[in-house]
Amino acid sequence: MSRMKWDQIGERLFETGLDHGVLFPMGNDGKYAKGVPWNGLSAVNETPSGGEPNAVWADNIKYLNLMSAEDFGATVEAFTYPPEFEECDGSAEVAPGVTIGQQVRKMFGLSYRTLIGNDVVGQNYGYKLHLVYGAQASPSEKNRQTVNDSPEATAMSWSLTTTPVDVPGYKATAHMTIDSTKTDKAKLAAFEDIIYGQDAAGDSAAVESRLPMPEEVIEFFKEVPPAG
């Protein structure tokens, strides 16, 4: 093995950007409804917590460290949101165009992309597709201001907590990522037809967007060993 080298051409990677937000509201049956585009999504600040060491002492020494369970949370910022998010934000429509607040907040799933760049092709190197499960939005502050000589679009934000879902053979999780630079291109394209939906073509009917659970995602991208 040759001596390692740093900052080689094409290996100077970075992450940037946020796009392709999709909201998956949870129905009363406990299943995620079809996805809808989240326009105006400006930030998803991931805030994991837990995973902290709890020291155990014995025989006058630190005997071991027990790690606390990890939890995934996030702060979502946007300039607008799809109508389907209103029930997730504690609103209910009681008459056409009339809504009330302080209602039960529905759980939802979320998908978004973050871009991967390098020193050669910039932001076009690749991206990570993020899947979030079991999310709930907490009440958030919304600031209303008069229009003045320096107008700005009103930014809104929500703190998200999550309830992890089962992953066979692993601990439960609320967050998955799929790296386009490491996965099979054809598989990724087919998977995005699931996440984003697919238009009708020829004899094929249109396919609605849906959020697959972690077990299905793992099986979808798992490498198939060669025959024989």
Score class of each variant (00 low, 15 high):
Gly10His: 12
Gly228Asn: 10
Gly90Arg: 03
Glu84Pro: 00
Glu52Asp: 07
Pro139Asp: 04
Leu64Asn: 09
Lys5Asp: 08
Ala227Met: 02
Tyr32Ala: 07
Lys62Cys: 11
Val44Lys: 15
Asp7Tyr: 14
Gly17Tyr: 10
Asp7Leu: 09
Val121His: 07
Ala74Met: 11
Gly197Ile: 04
Gly35Leu: 03
Lys187Trp: 01
Glu215Tyr: 01
Phe108Gly: 15
Thr181Asp: 04
Ile116Gly: 08
His175Gly: 02
Val132Asp: 03
Val217Tyr: 13
His20Trp: 03
Thr47Ile: 11
Trp38Tyr: 07
Phe24Leu: 00
Leu64Trp: 10
Phe220His: 12
Gly40Lys: 02
Ser68Ile: 00
Ser159Glu: 07
Leu23Gln: 10
Val104Trp: 14
Tyr112Gly: 04
Val121Ser: 08
Ala92Phe: 15
Gly30Met: 05
Thr47Tyr: 04
Leu129Ser: 07
Ile178Leu: 13
Val207Cys: 01
Pro53Glu: 08
Ser159Cys: 00
Lys187Ile: 02
Ala206His: 13
Val224Ile: 10
Asp71Pro: 00
Leu18His: 07
Ser91Tyr: 10
Glu70Asp: 11
Gln136Pro: 00
Val121Tyr: 13
Phe79Ile: 06
Tyr63Ser: 07
Leu110Asp: 06
Thr47Pro: 00
Glu84Leu: 01
Gly30Asn: 04
Thr173Gln: 05
Glu215Asn: 12
Ser111Gly: 03
Asp19Tyr: 09
Pro212Lys: 06
Pro96Gln: 15
Thr163Glu: 14
Lys182Phe: 02
Val147Pro: 04
Gly40Trp: 08
Gly117Asn: 09
Pro48Asp: 05
Val104Asn: 15
Ala205Trp: 06
Lys222Ile: 00
Tyr133Ala: 05
Gly17Val: 06
Gly35Thr: 06
Gly169Phe: 14
Met26Gly: 09
Phe221Val: 05
Pro53His: 12
Lys31Tyr: 06
Asp193Gln: 07
Ala186Cys: 00
Gln102Lys: 14
Arg105Glu: 03
Asp59Val: 04
Ala201Tyr: 09
Ser42Gly: 02
Tyr63Leu: 11
Lys187Ser: 08
Leu160Val: 02
Gly35Glu: 06
Pro48Tyr: 11
Gly109Thr: 03
Met67Ala: 02
Thr183Lys: 05
Ile195Pro: 15
Arg105Lys: 09
Tyr125Asn: 02
Asp119Pro: 05
Thr75Asn: 11
Tyr196Glu: 12
Val165Trp: 14
Val98Ser: 01
His175Met: 10
Arg210Gly: 04
Glu87Asp: 12
Gly40Ser: 05
Glu219Asn: 14
Lys5Trp: 05
Gly134Gln: 05
Lys34Ile: 00
Ser138Phe: 13
Gly35Ala: 06
Glu46Thr: 08
Ala92Arg: 15
Thr173Lys: 08
Thr80Tyr: 01
His20Val: 03
Ala206Arg: 13
Glu223Arg: 14
Gly134Ile: 01
Gly117Thr: 10
Arg210Trp: 02
Ser159Arg: 12
Trp158Gln: 12
Gly117Val: 12
Gln136Met: 13
Ser150Tyr: 11
Asp193Ser: 03
Thr162Gln: 02
Ala172Glu: 07
Met176Trp: 07
Val147Phe: 14
Ile218Ser: 06
Cys88Val: 03
Ser157Val: 01
Glu86His: 01
Arg144Leu: 11
Thr114Trp: 02
Thr163Ile: 15
Glu11Val: 01
